[in-house]
Amino acid sequence: MIRLGSTNALFFRANLALSMVSVALQTVLLVTVWRAVYSGHGQVAGINEADAVSYAVIAMLLWHIALPWQLSSIPDRVREGTVATDLIRPIGVVGQSLLQAVGATVGAIPGVMVGLAVAFAFGGLEPPASTGALGGFLLTAALGWSIAAMLNIAVSMVAFWTTDTRGPFYIYRAVASFASGALIPLWFMPTWLRPLLDALPFGLQVFAPLQLWHGQEPIGRLWAVLATQLAWLAAAAAIVALVSWRALRKVVINGG
């Protein structure tokens, strides 16, 4: 299944090349925009230009992996009726989707590498604050990815109820992108918005790992982040279990 997911991502060579060019271009644009926005300002919200640029690049790449253009293959498979085959496989629809998500992430690695290389070439990458910070980043980023993957599956199961999934997907994508800190670091958010954003799981996917990268959170607080992430992961898994249990009662197999 993992291999299928990554082969899927890597199958269309032209698309792969385009996606690498696309990541490279977006990296250059991000670096330029943040530098331009910062010109004339020393520090904003206690953050200097180099940190903000580096944050923007890594956040974009994390998000590129955690929230792919296609949330999962479930909507397409429901519409085409091929979900019938998935249902009789011994591994379950959720398991299959998760493994495909892992595969898709493996397939996205070339793009991430290109993004990092371009950012590095433009001097837009700050190294992690310490080895401990790097470890904390990797650990929390992996957990954050798992939460995102679970939520992506939960949301994509809307397809079992409605054929047109664009509306719910747009809402999810917009809320998740904004609240995760993928577009703008949560440092810059107005203070009244912070409690709401902190209560959502999205900040744990991008903002928290990057705070650790920049050595912002004292290392002792790492455990608090990890504990919250594990709690959210359990909650997300429970949501997926509940939704899929309801969905399978609802499923309509299209086609003859």
């Binding site: 926005v37 703008i184 810059f188």
Partner: peptide, 27 residues
């Protein structure tokens, strides 16, 4: 579905608006 689609588009655009808004607010 009509309403959900419209709300979806509103949310998507609101996201972009917030992006610019937060930047202008901070800078």
């Amino acid at each position: 579905n009509f309403f959900i689609s419209v709300i979806g588009a509103l949310a998507f655009n609101a996201g972009q608006l917030l992006f610019i808004g937060v930047l202008l607010n901070a800078f």
